[in-house]
C-alpha cells in the first residue's frame, strides 16, 4: 500500500519537472518531426495514466525502462552504481556503530562524570556540524596539508583493495559521524533507563561483575530503541550519501540522482527515487522484525497494515 502511493508520487512528481525530455534527447537542432519521433518512441505522447500503468507493470518485474540520456537500461545503471553506495553506507554504519555504542555505554555507566560530559559534548557537535563541511575540512587537513590519503575518486575493491579502502576511509568517516552522534545519544539514554531497571539490580545483587551486567543483561534491552532510531536514520544516511559522494567524487547512487536531475533523465530519476524509498520502507520492516529477535516478548499484532 505504502509502496503503491510512493510509486504514484514519484511518477507524478517527475512528470511535473519543467522541461521537455524529448528536446533534451534530440539536442538543440532537432526539428519538429524529430521531436515527434522521439516522443512516439518513448511513449511520451500517451496520457499520464497509461504511462503510469505501463511503467508500474514493468517496474514490478524489475524493468525500470532505459535512461533517456545514455540509452542504457535503468536497472543496469543502478546495478552498476548501487554496490558502491552500499559499500560506503556499510562502512559508515560500521564507523557509526563502532563509535556510538561503546561511547554511549561508557557515558551511561559513568554517568555525570567527565567521560559523560565529553561524550555528550562531542555528540552535540556531531549533530550540529554540516557533514559536507566536515568532509571539506578533512580533505583540507588529510589530503591537502598532510597528503596522507587521496582527496577523491574511486577504485573498485576488486581492482585494488588497498586503494579502495584508502579512498573510502574519509567518506565513511564523514557519513558515519552524524549518525554516530545521534546513535550515541540514544544509546546513552536507553542504557541509563535500563541500568536502573529491577532485573539489572537483581543481576547485580546476584554478585555478577559489572561487565556481565552491562553487556549481557542491560545492553540487549537497551538496544531496542537504538535499533529503531537506526532504521529511521537510514533516510538520513541515504541523503548523506548523496552529499558525501558529491564531495569525494564517488561515482555511486547519489551522484547518479544529482546528474539525472540536472539532465532531466526521467526514467533514471524515477527508478532511483523509487528504489530509495522502497529500500527505506523495507529496512524499517526489517527493523520491526529485529525487535522479536532482540526481545522475544514483543510479538507484532495484526500484520494487516504492513507495507
Amino acid at each position: 500500500m505504502t509502496l503503491l502511493v510512493i510509486s504514484l508520487i514519484v511518477f507524478v512528481g517527475v512528470r511535473m519537472i519543467p522541461g521537455d525530455p524529448a528536446r533534451v534527447l534530440a539536442g538543440t537542432d532537432a526539428d519538429a518531426a524529430g521531436l515527434e519521433e522521439i516522443r512516439e518512441k518513448y511513449g511520451l505522447n500517451e496520457p499520464w495514466p497509461v504511462q503510469y500503468g505501463r511503467w508500474l507493470a514493468l517496474a514490478v518485474r524489475g524493468d525500470l525502462g532505459e535512461s533517456i540520456r545514455t540509452r542504457q537500461p535503468v536497472r543496469q545503471t543502478v546495478a552498476a552504481k548501487l554496490p558502491i553506495t552500499i559499500e560506503l553506507a556499510c562502512l559508515a554504519l560500521l564507523v557509526a556503530i563502532g563509535i556510538a555504542i561503546p561511547a554511549g555505554i561508557l557515558a551511561a555507566v559513568r554517568r555525570n562524570t567527565l567521560w559523560d560530559v565529553l561524550a555528550s559534548g562531542v555528540s552535540l557537535c556531531g549533530v550540529s556540524v554540516p557533514n559536507f563541511w566536515l568532509g571539506i575540512m578533512l580533505i583540507l587537513l588529510v589530503s591537502v596539508r598532510l597528503g596522507w590519503l587521496p582527496a577523491s575518486g574511486f577504485v573498485p575493491i576488486a581492482d585494488d583493495p588497498l586503494g579502495n579502502v584508502k579512498r573510502m576511509l574519509m567518506p565513511a568517516l564523514v557519513l558515519g559521524a552524524g549518525l554516530a552522534a545521534v546513535l550515541m545519544r540514544q544509546t546513552r539514554n536507553a542504557m541509563i533507563e535500563v541500568l536502573s531497571a529491577d532485573y539489572v539490580r537483581t543481576a547485580r545483587a546476584k554478585g555478577l561483575a559489572q561487565p556481565a551486567v552491562v553487556l549481557r543483561h542491560a545492553l540487549r534491552n537497551g538496544l531496542i530503541p537504538v535499533v529503531t532510531i537506526l532504521g529511521l536514520q537510514m533516510g538520513a544516511l541515504m541523503s548523506g550519501a548523496v552529499v558525501t559522494e558529491q564531495i569525494f567524487v564517488i561515482p555511486g547512487f547519489g551522484r547518479l540522482i544529482v546528474e539525472a536531475v540536472f539532465t532531466r533523465d526521467y526514467p533514471v530519476v524515477q527508478g532511483v527515487v523509487l528504489i530509495t524509498a522502497s529500500a527505506y520502507v523495507l529496512i524499517n520492516l526489517l527493523v520491526d522484525v529485529s525487535y522479536t529477535v532482540l526481545n522475544p516478548r514483543i510479538r507484532i499484532r495484526g500484520t494487516a497494515d504492513g507495507a
Partner: peptide, 24 residues
C-alpha cells in the same frame, strides 16, 4: 497516517532534490 508514512518514506534530501527540480 498512511499518506504520512508514504511521505516519510522519501529520505529528506531525495524529497527536497525532487521538489526543487520540479519548482526550480
Amino acid at each position: 497516517m498512511r499518506l504520512t508514512d508514504a511521505w516519510l518514506a522519501f529520505p529528506f534530501l531525495i524529497l527536497a532534490i525532487g521538489l526543487v527540480t520540479i519548482l526550480g
